[in-house]
Design a protein around this nucleic acid. Sequence first.
DNA 1: TAAAAGAGGACTAAAATAGTCCTATAACAG
DNA 2: CTGTTATAGGACTATTTTAGTCCTCTTTTA
Lengths: 139, 139
Amino acid sequence: MELIKRNTDYALRALVHMAEADNDRIHPMGELAAATGAPETFLRKVVQKLDAAGVVATRRGRGGGVCFQKDPDAITVLEVVEAVQGPVAINKCFIANRECDDRFACLIRSNLGGIQNDLLELLRAATVTNLARDTRLPA
Amino acid sequence: MELIKRNTDYALRALVHMAEADNDRIHPMGELAAATGAPETFLRKVVQKLDAAGVVATRRGRGGGVCFQKDPDAITVLEVVEAVQGPVAINKCFIANRECDDRFACLIRSNLGGIQNDLLELLRAATVTNLARDTRLPA
DNA sequence: TAAAAGAGGACTAAAATAGTCCTATAACAG
DNA sequence: CTGTTATAGGACTATTTTAGTCCTCTTTTA
């Protein structure tokens, strides 16, 4: 099981690519597709979600494309994952704080709830800028 | 996205149910299916994996069923998840330490690697006994 | 006003998840 | 030594999620 699906992976790649550009220029989809290795039509959908979440802004027409709407410093991995994949949970019962319908779901709540919180905290601690910095270092 | 799929959920429920029994008796599949709400034929498969992983032992024939092979104190959530669902990873590139084929996968490695480790650590910290204890407490 | 670019919806393909079913094998009671 | 109760295990099916495509529409600007 992977926490990060392909769409989020593409999103992170695209954001890191953008963060690595010296200036905060606008990046056409075609460029992002080439840089990330994602099919352009698919990446479009991913970027639309980042747009909806206020992470990036897009412009149509000639000279259009994608640029940051938030400072890459302030964009967390959790934010990207949630924007692109939807909510992250340790178990179904945690999504949107849905009420549990039996005691077993609540067993999950009581103890695994801590794990859930810690996991989200981990994902909140990493930002696009972190990732971009690391990428520039030698392997 | 849920970290814990239905099969693991059933496994945890069954193990907690077993841990709650006063004696370490043998539990027939039918009993476990009733206690967990899982379809018996499906639960069978799940338990087989727990057996293969050395978490429980099973006996066939009259009076047969399932019992702990390891102390429930020593059975971690990570162990159960891995036994039933397979490896847990933050991204594909982490499964079985597979080599990355491009720098983006390695971007994921360098920074998200820490998250991966922390996540596994979280799952290692919770045991079946923990879950069973919590379940007995009032909501 | 035509070319370049993203928006958005409907659609399809592939893979993972969740289960079912059927036959075989083991253990034990009588 | 055989019938009954129980798990083993493989093949199969259904459902859902993930991944991707395609086509038409709108926006932008040279």
